[in-house]
């Protein structure tokens, strides 16, 4: 069984007529890196909220089906319990930092759990170090760059020791340098610590090289789910308005002219290697 099991989940926010999620099934294995994408308003954020219990505990509405997180049914466990398994990082780093120093913010979650002080200190130190925020721990959030703020937010969530990190468009407020900083951090957490990642993103050119799977949502449903090479070359992905990375479009253009590469490239470096192999063999 996967660490996250979404089983036939439908959800309609109270006061809304249209369901935000419509019979969604999704299974994520431990240590997987999954990208979730799709046009705005397709239900990505609602799905994220289901994973740590914000739906249905914080956002009420009509909830059907079930979500299992590390074996816990989200309907029967509270957000604070679930958030020790699934850490949620939001779009705007500013609204996730409530304290006047990074360190105090990272301590916020474990403090709420009422853990022993020594344990809190250990976790805070660990979370600050794995996110590269140790040196900046005494800084107030407004003195940090956007990338650093988002790193602090990730550290704050990691201090809850979750097995899964769910990030809802964490780079959309950042500049390219900040975005790259966050993406490589997330990739490293996944690779080195085996943390399962579900990353909501529009920018597939920057993110797909890291992904084991790409899931595309549309109108509250899962439309596509598979390895990035497969999903991003499918006709459906284009029709759904997914931004196909330029390297994949170039790959397709070359194929049309008879230059077939042995693999679907996800990054310019990979593509260049593939091309050089092919043209040198000819």
């Amino acid at each position: 069984m996967g660490i996250i099991e979404v089983e036939d989940v439908s959800f309609t926010y109270s006061g809304s007529k249209r369901p935000a999620l419509d019979h969604v099934d999704l299974s994520i294995k431990k240590s997987e890196f999954v990208i979730l994408t799709g046009p705005s308003g397709c239900g990505k954020t609602t799905l994220c909220r289901c994973l740590n219990g914000l739906v249905p505990h914080f956002y009420s509405g009509d909830f059907r089906g079930r979500v299992l997180v590390a074996g816990l049914d989200t309907r029967e466990h509270e957000i604070w319990e679930l958030s020790q398994h699934v850490g949620l990082v939001f779009q705007n780093p500013e609204n996730q930092l409530f304290c006047l120093t990074v360190e105090a913010d990272v301590a916020f979650g474990p403090e709420n759990l009422g853990l022993p002080r020594e344990e809190i200190r250990r976790r805070v130190e660990w979370a600050l170090k794995v996110t590269g925020m140790w040196e900046l721990r005494h800084r107030p959030p407004h003195e940090l760059s956007g990338g650093q703020q988002q790193r602090a937010a990730i550290a704050a969530v990691l201090a809850m020791k979750p097995e899964v990190l769910v990030l809802d468009e964490p780079t959309s407020f950042l500049d390219p340098a900040g975005a790259a900083e966050i993406l490589s951090l997330v990739a490293e957490l996944n690779k080195r610590l085996g943390i399962t990642v579900l990353l909501v993103e529009h920018r597939l050119d920057m993110t797909s090289p890291y992904a084991d799977r790409v899931v595309v949502m549309a109108k509250g449903r899962i439309a596509l789910d598979g390895p990035p090479e497969e999903v991003l070359t499918s006709r459906e992905a284009r029709e759904l308005g997914v931004g196909i990375p330029k390297v994949i479009r170039l790959y397709e253009l070359l194929a049309e002219r008879g230059l077939r590469l042995p693999e679907v490239p996800l990054s310019p470096g990979q593509m260049a290697s593939l091309i050089s192999e092919v043209v040198r063999c000819r």
Partner: peptide
Amino acid sequence: ASLVRPQVPEVLFNL
């Protein structure tokens, strides 16, 4: 300018 290079010229550069 701390910009990420566009993918198309980046492929050509790597080549």
